[in-house]
Write a protein that binds this DNA or RNA. Structure first.
Lengths: 343, 343
DNA sequence: ATGAAAGCGCTAACAA
DNA sequence: TTGTTAGCGCTTTCAT
């Protein structure tokens, strides 16, 4: 047992100082469950102020069985869409009187397992979880009895609560939008093929093309990481072949990487290539050109996720949210803000 | 005391199952502090596997006095520079066998206080902290005896450990770079004037100009929020007056907001206006045009921060890191990747 | 090598 | 209204 440099003030010190019992000190701190005489309360409060006492949250958690903490595990906090979601969740958790213990898996499956494990050990009151890949550690969590909400595409047969937008439909609509512009050669830059959400997004793209009587050419599927560099690399591959007229990038970072590659080849968006992307954030709106992007209702989703943890009864609940296609300049709907004065 | 839906397996269950005492179970789990006979160890491990037992981290923390947790409080996790720092810190903390409890203040001073408070209550083993403003809650933390490292500009007279780059010098160098390009009318878009780091950055800008025999025109200081919208607004104000030839934006998001505003006026970077910014991330590198930016050595700083918490002895230590000026296209050093094919 | 037992600081049931 | 005390699940000392 490591001795702290300075012994901390405990509840017993306050009781002694205020000339009362430890129970009364608790009652004052917690505003219950028993009433306390005003005079006594004053003495206790005075003692607390005098000593600078702060209740030990750990001991409290042990005795009460609640940590007033939720856990959040994300694949990579450096992804702006994810950090905006984390931000919203934190706000909502806070409104619920708890803090979020945020774990960043750094796109590593093993790290993710460690984090989930760690949070479970810490007896969080609930866990919100987006997995790095399609093999989420759900069983481990369920075995612990901890309330769980997946913020992810999860195999339908799993008995687990989950919140998501219908990504297949969102991808369909994004592609559909490009088709309505009259573009017929529409490529897709997507994530790793084994991921469920990649598959959903490809499937939406494919369906939109087929419904329009177009043939989804497998050569126009460019799988890569969900990163800027990934988008850049995929675009380079694309540029080595026949150029499509339009492109659906399945996340915002890929879209930015792609834009960079296109610029390197002297191609402009949307004139040479129209672009729509998935999971846009404020970054899409401020980019030049601004990106037409599928937007998820991050705040509502965060609210619902916390709500589900709060109301937890062990029954799995799936909740689907509507998305929105935010129109920018990259698809050709609007004139692009000119980056050059004349010529 | 809230009853869990399923009673959790405890160490006593394991002891019973393995036909031994609770102490031995601890010895097995912790690999000490006492040796355990191989046969006994096997029985214990078998019982653990059979029951799916996991030690209660809360109880462990209470008994051992260490939570194996560090706290991190940041002003806004949606800022890419900050999230990259958080990411690096998480990696380092993990390597140290701990998790980071990440609190996002959402740019709110009161929220920040609550978070700091909360983390202290949770008896974190150390706190890393960047404040929303110039009034960090340092006293509160020091009163608790919790190891603290500020990742921030802190008033020199405060007895507190801190890590930072010399922002004044970095701003000087960024401005100096613009001057070396031959630009003489150099404006600055900065953060709120009352913030210390804003003052440092302005001061570096001012010094570089003066050393070059130029006059820092107060009308060319555009104070705003450290956000994209802030940068956009500031640029709009700037565009309403006489246009400078170059601009120093004091963070990356402001730079992006500014680029958007410039594009709206048909101005190009660096041809019409050269640009350098502060705290660039991978986003700067991939932007079109790529941004010349001051880069902080995020990973080394994270490592040092964790190191300082680990080695904590109560003695305040200040540590200054070197920065780097990453050359991109926005300052005019390099030809810009063409965003248009011809004309 | 193992077991018994005293905490860690708190909550809350029970008694007064 | 207040005090007493049995846990919460674990670590670790001290006996054995």
């Amino acid at each position: 047992m490591s001795k702290p440099l300075v012994r901390r003030v405990t509840r017993a010190d306050i009781a002694r100082e205020a000339g009362t019992s430890v129970a009364v000190v608790s009652y004052v701190i917690n505003n219950g469950p028993r009433p306390v005489a005003p005079a006594t309360r004053e003495r206790v409060l005075a003692a607390i102020k005098k000593t600078g006492y702060r209740p030990n949250g750990i001991a409290r958690a042990l005795a009460s069985g609640t940590t007033r903490t939720y856990g959040l595990v994300v694949p990579n906090i450096a992804n702006p869409f994810i950090s905006s979601m984390a931000h919203a969740l934190q706000q909502e958790a806070f409104a619920d009187g708890r803090v979020l213990l945020l774990g960043d898996a750094g796109d590593d499956r093993e790290r993710e397992r460690e984090l989930v494990n760690n949070l479970l050990h810490r007896q969080v009151d609930g866990l919100i979880y987006t997995s790095v890949d399609r093999h989420p550690w759900i069983e481990m969590i369920q075995a612990s009895g901890t309330p769980l909400v997946m913020l992810d595409r999860v195999a339908p047969e799993l008995q687990v609560s989950a919140i998501q937008v219908n990504e297949q439909r969102a991808a369909w609509q994004a592609t559909r939008h490009l088709i309505e512009h009259g573009y017929r050669e529409i490529a897709i830059i997507c994530g790793p093929l084994e991921m469920l959400n990649t598959q959903d997004r490809i499937s939406g793209w494919r369906q939109a093309l087929e419904e329009a009587g177009l043939t989804p050419d497998p050569a126009w599927i460019f799988a890569t990481d969900y990163t800027r560099q990934g988008g850049y690399d995929a675009a380079q591959r694309m540029l080595a072949g026949a150029l499509p007229r339009a492109l659906f990038a399945t996340n915002e970072q890929q879209a930015f990487g792609c834009l960079r590659a296109l610029a390197g080849h002297g191609l402009s968006v949307p004139d040479d290539l129209a672009l729509v992307c998935f999971n846009g954030t404020v970054e899409s709106a401020f980019n030049v050109p601004s990106l037409t992007a599928v937007r998820q209702p991050v705040i509502s989703m965060a609210r619902k996720a916390i709500e589900m943890l709060k109301q937890w009864d062990g029954e799995p609940e799936r909740c689907e949210f509507d998305f929105e296609l935010e129109i920018g300049e990259s698809c050709g709907c609007r004139p692009v803000a000119h980056a050059r004065k004349s010529n």
